[in-house]
Design a protein around this nucleic acid. Structure first.
Lengths: 119, 119
DNA sequence: GTAACTAGTTACCAAAAGGTAACCATCAAT
DNA sequence: ATTGATGGTTACCTTTTGGTAACTAGTTAC
C-alpha cells in the first residue's frame, strides 16, 4: 500500500489552527479586547460610557469596532426611545464566553512581563 | 472625605488589560500563532521545514517573524555546523507556555464556527 | 440663540502589515 | 557548468489599520 503524497499534517491540527485564526480575526485590532473586557466587567454600557472608559478611542474607531463585534454576534446593540435616545451595547453569550480566553491572555501577559523584568 | 476625581477603574483591571495587550502584541500578525503551534506540536524545526509546514509563507515573512519571536524570548535559534549549515528553531519555556492560550483560542474558534453554522 | 449632550459619520492622511519577485552566498550532486 | 538544496535579504508595491478633525442631527438647558 502506497502512502499518499505528503499529507502528514493531522487534520485535527489544521482545524485547530483554523480555530486560532478565526478567534484572532474576531479579536483583531487595538480595541476589541478592551471593549469586550469593559462590557464583561461593567455589564451593558452606552456609547459614551464606553468612550470614556476606553480612554483615547476615537468615536470613529469605537463605532467601527462595535459594528464588527455586532456583525460577529459577540455584542448586541439596542436603541432606547429615551430623550435623547440612548444606545446600549451588551455582550452576547458568545461574547461572554470569550472572557476565559481574554482572561488567560491577561494573566499570561502579566506573568511574562514579570519574568522579563526579573531576567 | 472627598473622593478623588474619577479613578473608578480598578488597577487590577488595568493591569489585566495591559497583560492582554502585551500578549496580543507578541502574537500579532498572521503567522506567529501558526509558527508557535508548529514548533509546539512538531518540536524543533529548521527554516525550510517550517516554510513547508506553514504552506504559503514567504521566506521574508518567516524570517521576520522568527526574529520577532526570538527577540521576545519565545523561540531560540541555533546554527549547526553541518554541511550545508542548518538552523534549528525551538520554543523556549515561555514559548511553550503560550500553548495553553493558543489551544484555548483554537477550541473556542472551533466551537464558535459550529455555533455559527448551526444558527 | 447658543452651548452641550446624545450617537455617531465623513474626508483625509500616515504608518504598518504583508505579499511578490529577484537576488545572495555556500555547498553537493550531475 | 548547471541545477538544487541550505538560510536567508532586498526592493518594490498594495492593502489594511488607525488616527485627526470636522461635521451631522435631535434634544435639552441657560
Amino acid at each position: 500500500m502506497k502512502k499518499k503524497k505528503a499529507p502528514e499534517r493531522p487534520t485535527q491540527c489544521r482545524v485547530l489552527i483554523q480555530g486560532v485564526r478565526d478567534t484572532q480575526d474576531l479579536l483583531n485590532g487595538k480595541w476589541k479586547t478592551p471593549i469586550i473586557g469593559a462590557l464583561y466587567y461593567r455589564g451593558k454600557m452606552r456609547f459614551m460610557e464606553l468612550r470614556r472608559e476606553l480612554d483615547g478611542i476615537a468615536p470613529k474607531m469605537l463605532s467601527q469596532e462595535l459594528k464588527d463585534l455586532e456583525m460577529n454576534h459577540l455584542v448586541t446593540r439596542t436603541v432606547h426611545n429615551t430623550m435623547p435616545i440612548t444606545v446600549e451595547y451588551e455582550l452576547t453569550e458568545q461574547g461572554k464566553s470569550l472572557n476565559s480566553i481574554i482572561d488567560a491572555m491577561g494573566r499570561w501577559g502579566i506573568k511574562y512581563r514579570e519574568q522579563m523584568l526579573r531576567a
